[in-house]
Computed example of a mutant assay.
Amino acid sequence: GQPPFDLLNFYKAAQQTSSNSGKQSSQQQNSATDSSKPDQIDDCANDLSDIAWAVTADGWLLVCGESADEPKLIRHNEDGSVVETTQVSHDNESSYSGKLSDGGSVWVSFSPGTVGRSDSEGKTTSQTQTDEIWFAELGKSKGSKGNEKGSFGAKLPKHDAKEQVRYLDELLRLSRKARKSLGNTMTELHGCVNGPDGDYSKQIAAIDATTSNRREMLTALEGAPVDRIPSGNVLISELKAAIQPSLEADIAYGEWARAIDSGCGDKRISAAGNAASDRATAAKIKFSKRWNNEIVPAFGVAKISHDQI
């Protein structure tokens, strides 16, 4: 009979053939599902499949990849200006993002259907609601009918300024409702109230819950359309700039809490956490002023104080 290694090589070759066949089948399936892609959107290269696309009032976006979990390219046409990047990530099942050569970013979010761009400083330059969007994993959507739910249970917005403001207002209100104050938690940790051998898992869990809340809010803001709101790009940039350092502060406080749980070593509150918290406070004040002075009079939503963000 044949030597054992020949049998092994035969098995490997069969496995490779099966894998290639599976990829081709997956690409054919994606192509079939995507048969109604609008004509104005480019096609992917022969070795890649369409895994997501979106149409907006001012252009389109295309994501190409080997599979839905393996994006390789994002191409974005905005008012006839096309950018492309191969530095692409699949952030979660409902979004893709990419780093641009100028240091900026481009992204697409399935729910509520948004295409966005930012500059090298992280400031949002556009965040536009889609007219139509398709993800290989999620199917197709032609915009919110006003009864679907997004992050924190907020109703997704229809395609007008009042609805986009209402969505932001709900995100702020519902995220605040789901987030507990950490004042008592920080006091307990600072005082090492349970002693050096005590259990601080309750305090750690409270900080972790707030951290998760901040992460969810940032993800929600990436997908919140603001193209119909006057100065919407500035508004959403300022809100993101308030939430990001809040998240950084909570992460630092969580690390400090775990150090306290290991024996009440350095009880001084995390300097890194305090510095991030100070940056967050300044940004929250800036955002709340714009919200209260520009958005509230124009759209009739409730005022907000910086310590509610």
Score class of each variant (00 low, 15 high):
14 A>N: 15
15 Q>T: 14
19 S>R: 13
21 S>K: 11
29 Q>E: 10
29 Q>D: 08
31 S>G: 07
32 A>S: 10
32 A>V: 03
34 D>R: 13
37 K>W: 06
44 C>K: 03
46 N>K: 09
47 D>Q: 12
47 D>E: 12
48 L>A: 04
49 S>M: 10
55 V>F: 01
70 E>G: 05
73 L>S: 12
77 N>S: 13
80 G>S: 11
91 D>P: 04
95 S>H: 05
100 L>Q: 12
100 L>C: 03
101 S>L: 04
105 S>Q: 08
108 V>M: 12
109 S>D: 15
110 F>E: 04
113 G>C: 09
113 G>D: 04
116 G>Y: 04
117 R>H: 09
120 S>F: 05
124 T>S: 02
134 W>R: 10
135 F>N: 02
139 G>N: 05
151 S>E: 13
155 K>V: 09
159 H>Y: 06
164 Q>F: 04
165 V>H: 10
167 Y>W: 03
172 L>H: 09
174 L>E: 14
175 S>C: 02
176 R>W: 01
176 R>N: 13
178 A>K: 07
179 R>Q: 14
179 R>Y: 11
181 S>F: 09
184 N>R: 10
191 G>I: 02
195 G>C: 03
197 D>L: 08
199 D>A: 04
202 K>Y: 09
202 K>V: 11
207 I>E: 01
210 T>E: 02
217 M>T: 14
221 L>Y: 06
221 L>V: 11
222 E>M: 13
222 E>A: 10
228 R>F: 09
229 I>D: 04
230 P>Q: 11
230 P>V: 09
233 N>I: 02
233 N>R: 00
234 V>W: 06
243 I>R: 11
243 I>Y: 12
244 Q>I: 13
247 L>A: 09
249 A>P: 03
259 A>K: 13
262 S>V: 06
265 G>I: 04
287 F>R: 07
288 S>N: 01
291 W>N: 00
305 S>C: 03
305 S>M: 05
305 S>G: 08
308 Q>Y: 06
